[in-house]
Amino acid sequence: MKILVCISNVPDTTTKVSFTDNNTKFNTAGVQYIINPYDELALTRALELTEKNGGEVTVINVGLVDTEANIRKALAIGANDAIRINANPEDGYFVAEQIAAAVKSEGYDVIFTGRESIDYNSGIVGGLLAEILNLPLINVVSKLEIEGGIVTADRDIDGGKETVKVATPCVISAQKELTEPRIPNMRGIMAARTKPLKVVEPSGSNALSNISAFEMPKPKGDCKYIDAANAGHLIDLLHNEAKVI
């Protein structure tokens, strides 16, 4: 079984967000980058599946050289090899086209993405990739088994879950609960140094969108306190003042 896991490089979850250059750039000063948490779950599940059924796991990233630290981390967690497409990830469309072009003829049984990147929260690369490669997509998957070329997965739906079956090859996007992330051990970290990390140049394709500006959310007004001994007053305020009930 050949599995591909798409990993994106994102600011750590505790990052204090701010913008520079007249609110046109994300302020990366002091920001720690991590593997997108959903992608890490996808990677771990991919490793569990290949450990059980045999096979290989490749990770792929569209990014400039500074993403290599996290690609090495993915190798340390256990991926067999890695591909970095040497380009700034302009938009989801660009990323999906680059990945599709690089892996089209590689015959992966399963291509994993995360349900969304925690920076831009788009959640589109998996769907774009599936359509470009003409593969079925099971989106936002919290449970997954593969047997005899058939994937059985639980996907989130509004207010619940649906269990679906699909034949490989297919695209799966990972949701939490898929598995527990693994912490790389010393042996993994040592091994990662010599695992293959192939750098390929981007193929011609254009982004269809770009970020023209950022904005911070409006600062909240001061909190209005209600005495705990007279807590019921809150209900009046919610009705008469905030007008939400």
């Binding site: 989801g92 959640g123 589109i124 769907g127 774009l128 470009i132 989106n139 739906i157 509004d158 969108s209």
Partner: peptide, 24 residues
């Protein structure tokens, strides 16, 4: 609408229409 169903179809529709997509 970016519901679970919407999230699964919107990018595919975008590719079919060669359309730029914004979600959220």
């Amino acid at each position: 609408s970016n519901t679970y169903t919407g999230k699964s179809v919107a990018p595919r529709v975008a590719v079919r229409l060669k359309a730029a997509i914004a979600s959220g």
